[in-house]
Design a protein around this nucleic acid. Structure first.
Length: 842
RNA sequence: GCCCGGGUGGUGGAAUGGUAUACACGCAAGACUUAAAAUCUUGUGGUCUUACGACCUUGAGGGUUCGAGUCCCUCCCCGGGCACCA
């Protein structure tokens, strides 16, 4: 097929949906690609094809399916690629856009090409900036100086979500902490809702779980530890610190708390300073800790004791030492922890290293272990009997982090952990507290290729958002765009850009020069698609009401905690602004698997990257699409193998195409047995169910089995001999049409062509998905499996409705059954599964 | 370390607790051909057996059940995610 033919067929599909008039809207969305690198990847095509098959299916089911595509071309990915190739990002964008759209035209998807968008288009990023301003106005965007993630290679800060195992998500450089003033979005305000709503949405379980873990809710208590130091109280006239608050999820282990640890950046340190006798040592440690990367911090536990001050354990009034250590994070909880080495792995390591006391406060309950644990105070043996070795293992080789029964805990000894948590918290006057791991979203980037943050700094009026009517704040046309690593965006070097007027007072002012994170671009694009032509607002209220939330969203699982969390946050903010009446952007989300090659992820360095172009040229889009879907379960992905493609080529081109066109061309020679076939209903049943569950591989297998008549059922088409003559010239033409509809989501071009040959003027995608006739898939005869003691000994063809009594009679007459049961009929009993099997138990 | 997936023929993979290995690739034999390719037909988990058939087999080991790839427990291996979150 030539390119012209593709286009001719594609034009028949009428992929443009009537946005305003659609009566059964169905929004079928796929994650838009980063158009960096050399072009469309076979991985992209895999995801898009699966999504498109679902979309085409829904369309055949009678829905008005909206299936848009666009490019996520702003941001570091694209910019780095441009820099590497020494081409201006804007020029590169033009090139990649052309290339991507050309390729996307070739893969046979039913895109609505009238609704494309690119995130670097100022008509788009105008509204990205508008969103920033709304966040600012609602107090959800704020600027704060703090230790942020800095990638020295990308020369920019990164969000927590973009740091993977201490390395930059993009370039794998070690990320360091840097004290910088940055813009943040207050996503933490939504932590509770982001977590709670997960129960309400139909998403892949593993994606929901990843989000749940990322949000990281933990319920515990805040407890106060009194600080003891006479000098402090005298010297600090104005600021007397008499307690430190810690957050813990294990108040039940409080009796085992043997020291207190503050983070090396702790806000408490300044206040405690005067009481610390070894200040120079402490100061030195703080300096060193600051210079460390996150990765270095996790390597080994370090810390230093704050000499001269002590804390009082509130539950037993014992004096305990205070340490600072970089294993305690300032950004979580209160930045101070009560250390219980017996029951916390990290505290245990630390205590072992610095020779601090380890006092068990909880022992496991149950089990058959027998050992009495000595009470620290009295020396009496208390608690349950445990096997010594077992307990040593639990208590001495490592911390016991599980729950159990309290020991060494005064009046609380013997109490179970769950109860003790409440009681001890109450006893020491602590308060219940919920903490989340989720941090605010660091949104500023010291780069060029992104939407400038629409903020103006005025000496008189302070931080002022750009007036909405002045949007977009366009990126200047400049060749001076390379990042310089100075903590400032290249835009800061552009005088004309920086200098501006204050929107409030009209005086001299300066623009913010950072651009926003590319994940903000993609956090709302699906709102824009149906409204891409709207010049007056980001999205139209009525249209949005009709089309959103998105009905089906398909994409990679790698975005579980990045993109998918941000979209949910932004959608919730829109909801709270009263713009929409839903909180969740995607009703249904499914993560697809990964296509690998030779057992490994495709990568240029391994030289195992599959370029879809070659295969499309060689086999055509239908074969490649269908093959990709046949490799394995869509949710799981699979291994791409060249040898596998021919199987699909044989099926589509040699069997379906040749046979069907032969029948159509010799229609008059065939006896029309329309309506007599039952095989088609079996196919309808299986293929519909499989597509709905995204089990495309088995859907294709069913299409093959039924088309080839391998099911043992009467062959609808007769047998076609190798020379192209038919053994049996009968054809169920209605079933044949239905078959083409069932196959069309997978092989749209081929089915369109054959559909036309059948005499249809309109596209196959204007047809309706065939209705299943349940009565046609009911078997009258079945092969009853006969087992003796669970082993298959025979199968007999019988009536489906056969009774146990009759089945039993037939069974014992079978030669191969007789020899096992003969003479033992007395002790025989049978298990009967109607229409399936009879198991004779002796 | 913790949390998810997964482990089935030579290969990719199928199997609501009910005939394990569908479908496809590969391989073998045959048909067509001067020949090859293409195409078509048949066969194809292992061991034993001329055959009928028997026994074994879903990472390992236990258990529940008339019956387990599927459910439960213990362990091993592979892939992915999180990573000092107290």
């Amino acid at each position: 097929m030539k390119k012209d033919d593709f286009e001719k067929i594609e034009s028949k599909w009428q992929n443009q949906v009537d946005i305003k008039g659609a009566s059964k809207p169905f929004y079928n969305l796929m994650m838009f690609p980063y158009p960096s690198a050399e072009g469309l990847h076979v991985g992209n095509m895999y995801a898009f094809t699966g999504s498109d098959i679902y979309g085409r299916y829904m369309r055949l089911k009678g829905y008005d399916v909206f299936e848009p595509i666009g490019l996520d071309g702003f941001g570091i990915h694209s910019e780095n690629f441009a820099i590497k190739n020494k081409i201006h990002p804007a020029k590169m964008a033009k090139k990649t856009q052309k290339r991507f759209y050309e390729q996307l035209h070739m893969i046979g998807n039913a895109y609505d090409w009238s609704k494309t968008l690119e995130t670097y288009d100022s008509d788009y990023y105008k509204w990205t900036q508008w969103i920033f301003i709304q966040m600012f106005k609602r107090g959800l965007a704020y600027k704060k100086k703090s230790a942020v993630n800095w990638c020295s290679s990308c020369k920019t800060v990164l969000s927590d979500e973009q740091v993977e195992a201490g390395k930059c998500e993009r370039c794998k450089t070690d990320v360091v902490k840097k004290e910088m003033s940055q813009w943040f979005f207050k996503i933490t305000k939504y932590a509770g809702r982001l977590l709670k709503n997960l129960d309400k949405i139909d998403w892949s379980e593993k994606t929901k779980l990843a989000q749940k873990n990322w949000i990281g809710k933990s319920e515990g208590a805040e407890l106060e530890f009194e600080i003891k130091n006479s000098k402090l109280q005298i010297d600090n006239k104005f600021q007397i610190l008499n307690s430190v608050t810690v957050f813990t999820t294990r108040p039940d282990t409080l009796f085992g708390c043997t020291y207190l640890v503050l983070s090396s950046e702790s806000k408490y340190i300044d206040i405690l300073k005067n009481g610390i006798e070894n200040w120079s040592e402490v100061e030195d440690y703080i300096k060193k800790a600051k210079a460390k990367s996150d990765l270095e911090r996790t390597n080994e536990k370090t810390g230093v004791e704050l000499k001269g001050i002590k804390a009082i354990n509130p539950v037993n009034k014992k004096e305990i030492p205070i340490w600072i250590a970089d294993y305690v994070l300032e950004g979580y909880g209160t930045g101070a922890v009560m250390a219980v080495p017996a029951h916390d792995k990290r505290d245990w390591e630390f205590a072992r290293k610095f020779d601090l006391k380890i006092i068990p406060a909880v022992i496991p309950t149950g089990g058959s272990m027998t050992f009495k644990y000595p009470d620290v105070e009295s020396g009496d043996e208390i608690g349950q009997r445990f096997d010594k070795e077992e307990l040593d293992k639990i208590m001495q080789e490592r911390a016991y982090v599980g729950e159990g029964k309290l020991v060494n805990s005064g009046e609380f000894s013997g109490m179970k952990s769950a109860e003790a948590k409440k009681e001890i918290t109450k006893f020491v006057g602590g308060k219940l507290k919920v903490n989340y791991k989720l941090r605010d979203w660091c949104i500023s980037r010291q780069r060029f290729w992104g939407p400038p943050i629409p903020i103006i700094y005025c000496e008189k009026c302070g931080t002022v958002p750009v007036d909405e009517k002045d949007l977009p704040v366009k990126l200047p046309k400049t060749d001076d765009y390379l990042p310089d690593g100075t903590e400032r965006s290249p835009l800061a070097r552009d005088e004309n850009f920086v200098k501006t007027k204050c929107p409030k007072c009209g005086g001299e002012a300066k623009r913010e020069t950072d651009v926003s994170d590319t994940f903000l671009d993609s956090a709302w694009y699906f709102f824009r698609y149906p409204c891409v032509d709207d010049k007056n607002e980001a999205f139209d209220k009525e249209i949005t009401k009709k089309w959103l939330p998105v009905d089906m969203y398909i994409g990679g699982h790698e975005h579980a905690v990045l993109h998918l969390l941000y979209t949910r946050f932004v959608t919730m903010v829109f909801h709270d602004m009263g713009l929409i009446d839903f909180e969740e952007p995607f009703k249904k989300f499914r993560a697809h698997g990964l296509i690998i090659k030779d057992g490994a992820k495709m990568s240029k360095s391994k030289g195992n990257v599959i370029n879809p172009d070659e295969y499309i040229e060689k086999y055509g889009p239908d074969v490649l699409r269908t093959y990709l879907m046949f490799i394995g379960p869509f949710k799981q992905g699979g291994d791409f193998r060249d040898e596998g493609v021919v199987g699909i080529e044989r099926f589509l081109m040699t069997r379906v195409k040749k046979v069907v066109s032969k029948i159509i061309n010799n229609k008059d020679d065939f006896e029309d047995i329309s309506g007599q076939s039952t095989w088609i209903h079996r196919t309808i049943n299986n293929v519909s169910k499989d597509i709905e569950n995204l089990k495309f591989n088995t859907a294709i297998a069913h299409l093959m089995v039924q088309f080839d008549g391998k099911d043992g059922k009467p062959d609808w088409r007769g047998k076609m001999e190798f020379d192209g003559t038919f053994e049996d010239k009968k054809c169920d033409f209605i079933a044949l049409e239905k078959f083409l509809i069932l196959l069309s989501p997978f092989a749209p071009y081929l089915c369109e062509e054959l559909w036309e040959m059948l005499g249809h003027k309109e596209s196959v995608f204007r047809a309706r998905w065939p209705e299943l006739d349940e009565s046609k898939i009911k078997d009258e005869k079945i092969n009853l499996v006969i087992q003796v003691n669970g082993k298959v000994r025979a199968t007999v063809e019988v009536d489906v409705e056969i009774s146990e009594e009759e089945a039993r009679k037939i069974a014992i007459e079978q030669e191969n059954v007789k020899k096992y049961v003969e003479g033992k009929e007395e002790n025989m009993r049978t298990i009967f599964v109607k229409g399936k099997l009879l198991n004779i138990v002796i």
